[in-house]
Design a protein around this nucleic acid. Sequence first.
RNA 1: GGCUCCAUGGUCAAGCGGUCAAGACAUCGCCCUUUCACGGCGGUAACACGGGUUCGAUUCCCGUUGGAGUCACCA
Length: 482
Amino acid sequence: MAKVRTRFAPSPTGRMHVGNLRTALYTYLIAKHEDGDFVLRIEDTDQERLMEGAVDIIYRTLDKTGLHHDEGPDKDGGVGPYVQSERVASGLYMEYAKKLIEKGEAYYCFCDKERLESLATEVAGKAITVYDKHCLHLSKEEIEANLAAGKPFVIRANVPNEGETTFHDEIYGDITQPNAELDDMILIKSDGYPTYNFANVIDDHLMNITHVVRGNEYLSSAPKYTRLYKAFGWEEPKYIHCPLITNEEHQKLSKRSGHSSYEDLIEQGFVNEAVVNFVTLLGWSPSDNQEIMSLQELIEKFDYTKISKSPAVFDMVKLRWMNGEYLKAMDAEDFYERALPYIKEVVTRDVDYKKIAGMVKTRIETFLDIKDHIDFFQEVPEYDIAMYTHKKMKTNAETSLALLKEVQPILAAQEDFTNDALFSSLSAFGKEKGYKTGFIMWPIRTALSGKPMTPGGATELMEVLGKEESLKRIEDAIAKLS
RNA sequence: GGCUCCAUGGUCAAGCGGUCAAGACAUCGCCCUUUCACGGCGGUAACACGGGUUCGAUUCCCGUUGGAGUCACCA
């Protein structure tokens, strides 16, 4: 059996969309599961949508997600160039287009914009144009004359209006489309560049791609590609169309959703591993049902025949959960380093950041959650004294005031301000007075933080805040309650 | 609108003729507990509908309904 070769062929038009990322992932996994080659090809044939720096984004994203390519613009494998604009320069596509013209499978078209627009009909608010094969009937002399006159042209595929075309997809099975539905698509644009439709077929063939992985949105145009393969007499690769990824409204994920690209997600405090893991599970699941998997495990378990057919909603809530799992499992030192910038954003006071990181680690789902948990370390926020009232702890403003007054001298006398030492001192005090732990801790914690929830108990907070600041906060609270 | 695809809980998703219809997220309850989390235990919740085929359909076929995608000199 021939070596598996897959390709990821993005257009450098901006950030990497998660749908695209998943396609890249599946493409990579299919190749690596079979120990095959993963090829990167840059499809920059749309000169208008090109975005500066977008190629770098592609490289960076593939690198960070661990999808290392075996061949690409920067890694020659002998079937390059791997950038379509460079291939255009060699005259490659035009050459193949002319072959098709000779076979009668394609033809020159000189129709201008105005004429094309006159062909358009409006359906459901959208302009739909079906070409009428006008230029197919041009005589050889007319074509020669037009070309000689330098009249702009495109080259279109000549698809019959009768019959139907069937192609086979590994996931969806046979899909048949009436030929009348297949427009005479443009192969070569008037600027001399090939369209995606054409360049794809040529390049996949020339690069010996065995499995073409792409999004479901190409499903209805796939028979067009089959016609091209047939016109050339080439063997078709295996097609694997992935189900769509949708938003909560079950519609194709768009830039508007705010989390549509890989970089959006990273900016929102997600870690790379969680994003990769989560996105892979959108439309596929392993036979053993494991959910948390490393890229290596994904390679081992991935079986493309089990990709699902129906679209999947991109569920941020589950992504958040999964991200939290990754954060909890992360090495403490590693977590500290990555959390530090987020901690420093809100806490500049001289405290042990490492301890704060440790406190917050099991309580957050994304790095962005850190802020709300720890802002009080910097400064006690304004709060209502009603916060001292807690039914289960049997506390209220009066008991809290009394308690804080009682506890203040004990803390003032306390030398060892570590969590354990503080806890045992306060426990001893409670035992002596007959107070329950919560009855003591609730007021102290409230006084220290001014918040109903904190990433640690009263004594843990004191350890971080230190003796001086802790006592100051307790005195402030006594003043506030008096 | 034409064409194409899809259809198991709120979401992801097992199942591939006979199951009390897995699991995960979310949700609810209990336990743990110096708050909140974490963790542990448990609960609620699904085969869109109608015809067939079959001894027997979530599973196969047809239709209905619903949803989505697509119909560019964009990919």
